[in-house]
Design a protein around this nucleic acid. Structure first.
Length: 300
DNA sequence: CGCATTTGACCGGCGC
DNA sequence: GCGCCGGTCAAATGCG
């Protein structure tokens, strides 16, 4: 009763800045690759709960509650047009979020990344004691991204099968549910439009791909594999080919003030156009955060 | 024909 | 206990 905190709230997880030249439906890995290569600036922060949980040491010194005020950063100011979905933890100071770039944001659309369902163990325990004796169904790490796009089902390199659609309360836009069609892969994602900004698509991923990316959307995102290493498994990554670049109003928005990781791109980017961005298979995260990024951040 | 999408029904969690 | 709501199922339908 006292606790009004929405158990389903999705907290912001980080900031990232992406070029507005990003073509429709490109995966996050592609965004990273392209962004770095384009030398347009840098990403702000990546703060993914699942990542945090899987790699706690990574956040030893940097983790900060998404609800806490943002740390001073260097990138262009980000602001969220319109409202953010109710499940988004709107930062107290979402209008002054910055990433680690001094580049003018002209060619960089406002971007934001959101993390969903940050369930604190303690809270869960209390709630379970209160309402349910049955242990709560364990949830896989979930990551939500707000993306400016006219396309609902963004092409992220995987094949998705739509298995449901529901009207969302207080929203004119339905929510679509997708499941990865990969063999034995239980990854799900749901897609909905931001209530306050219909141009923004909220894509929430849940689970970890058990297979490599098998799709080469429009021929400019390709699978890259490398021998098992970091965490084992079949690593894969997507690669964006600039030859297919075209003007497109797509960007990921991230109002999060939670600067867990920071990353700065430069001319010596780790994500060259002509060489694949190799990402260790760390599950879903690999689709979003190049391992180089994690490494760099770790060193900071 | 196989696969994807649509859509109403159903189920479970949660608040009251 | 009831109702609301989010999430999933599965039959029907569409499409290449």
């Amino acid at each position: 009763m006292e606790n009004k905190e929405d158990p389903q709230r999705e907290s912001l997880v980080g900031n990232s800045t992406f070029s507005d030249h990003i073509p429709a439906g490109f995966s996050l890995s592609s965004f990273f690759d392209m962004t770095c290569d384009a030398e347009k600036g840098s990403f702000g922060f990546i703060d993914v709960l699942g990542f945090q949980e899987n790699y706690p040491s990574f956040f030893d010194d940097q983790f900060q509650s998404p609800l806490e005020p943002p740390l001073p950063l260097l990138s262009p100011t980000l602001s969220v047009p319109g409202e953010v979905p109710e499940f988004v933890n709107t930062p107290a100071d979402s209008s002054s979020i910055s990433s680690s770039s001094n580049e003018a944001p002209n060619t960089w659309e406002q971007t934001k990344t959101v993390q969903e369902e940050h369930e604190q163990d303690q809270e869960n325990t209390n709630k379970q004691l209160k309402h349910k004796k049955k242990p709560k169904r364990e949830r896989k790490p979930r990551f939500a991204f707000l993306t400016k796009s006219e396309i609902d089902n963004l092409d992220d390199g995987y094949r998705w099968r739509k298995y449901g659609q529901k009207a969302v309360k207080n929203s004119p836009f339905p929510r679509s549910y997708y499941r990865c069609t990969g063999p034995g892969c239980g990854v799900k994602k749901r897609v909905e439009r931001c209530l306050g900004d219909p141009a923004t698509v909220v894509t929430t991923y849940e689970g970890t791909h058990t297979h490599s990316c098998l799709v080469t959307p429009r021929g400019n995102v390709r699978l890259v594999t490398e021998p098992a290493g970091f965490g084992g498994g079949g690593p894969s990554s997507l690669h964006y080919d600039h030859r297919h670049e075209q003007p497109y109003n797509s960007h990921i928005i991230n109002p999060s003030p939670s600067p867990c990781l920071s990353f700065t791109a430069n001319a010596n980017s780790s994500f060259p156009v002509d060489s694949p961005c190799l990402i260790r298979d760390c599950g879903l995260l690999q689709d979003m955060v190049p391992w180089q990024l994690r490494k760099v951040s770790k060193e900071q």
